[in-house]
Amino acid sequence: MAASTPPRPGQQGRGLRLTLERTPVTPGHFMTLTVAGELDTGSIPALCELMSQVLGEGSRHLIVDLSEVTRCDNASFFTLLGIREAAHHAGGSLTLADPSRCVRLALAHSVLRDLLPFHDLRAQEPPDT
């Protein structure tokens, strides 16, 4: 299932601002969410809605792949921290994975940099033989 936010005024025809894609890893417990596009105050409601839906459906362990994020602001980090806390309170976890260059740069300047660890999931994949 994919959800997206509408383009900002003046960006009609340029594609979507944010695309969210769900990939079940193990039915009922683990879910990977891929975020692509702009992750900012304008697109956070779509992310929160999808996270609430996924947690409500019973997935407790979420991986958020941020490798395709093209823009990220500080409000996004506060939102991700809040979502991580909600997942923990539901008996689950939130793993932030594969941050794009802009996410890494924004996080380096954020007061939350030590509270939001990122994991490089690609480094854990075995090389193609």
Rank of each mutant, 00 (worst) to 15 (best):
T70K: 08
S93V: 06
I83N: 07
D73Y: 01
E21W: 02
L20K: 08
G42I: 00
G56K: 10
A36L: 09
T23S: 15
D98I: 05
S100N: 12
L33K: 05
M31R: 05
T95P: 07
P27Q: 15
E49K: 07
G28S: 09
L50R: 07
R22F: 03
I44W: 01
A86Y: 00
T19C: 11
G58S: 11
L81Y: 03
V54M: 05
A86S: 15
C102F: 01
A97L: 04
R60Q: 11
L66H: 01
D98M: 04
V64T: 00
R84W: 05
P99T: 10
T95L: 14
D40S: 03
E38G: 04
R60K: 10
A97C: 09
F30R: 14
D40L: 02
Q11T: 11
Q53C: 07
G56P: 10
F30I: 06
A86P: 02
F30L: 14
L55K: 03
A86R: 11
S52M: 05
I63Q: 02
T23V: 15
L55E: 01
E38I: 00
C102P: 06
R84I: 04
G82I: 05
A90H: 08
T23M: 10
V35D: 00
V25A: 11
E68G: 07
C102H: 03
D98V: 08
P99M: 07
P24E: 07
H61Y: 08
G42R: 04
S43A: 07
L16S: 14
A86Q: 15
V69I: 12
M51H: 12
I44P: 00
I63R: 06
A87M: 07
S93D: 14
R71F: 03
T41M: 07
I44S: 04
G91C: 10
R84H: 13
R104H: 11
E57Y: 01
A87L: 07
E85G: 09
T41A: 14
Q12W: 07
V25H: 06
G82E: 04
H89T: 11
T79G: 11
T79M: 10
L47V: 06
T19Q: 13
L81V: 09
M51Q: 03
R22V: 15
A97V: 07
C102Y: 00
F78D: 12
H88W: 12
R22C: 13
I44K: 05
V25E: 14
M31T: 12
L50N: 05
F78I: 08
T70V: 09
H88M: 15
T41E: 08
I83S: 14
S93K: 10
S76C: 12
S67Y: 00
G15Q: 05
G42W: 03
E21S: 13
T26D: 15
L80I: 11
I44E: 04
V25N: 08
T23A: 13
L96K: 00
G91V: 12
A75Q: 14
T34Y: 01
R71A: 03
D65N: 14
L62E: 00
S100H: 02
A75I: 06
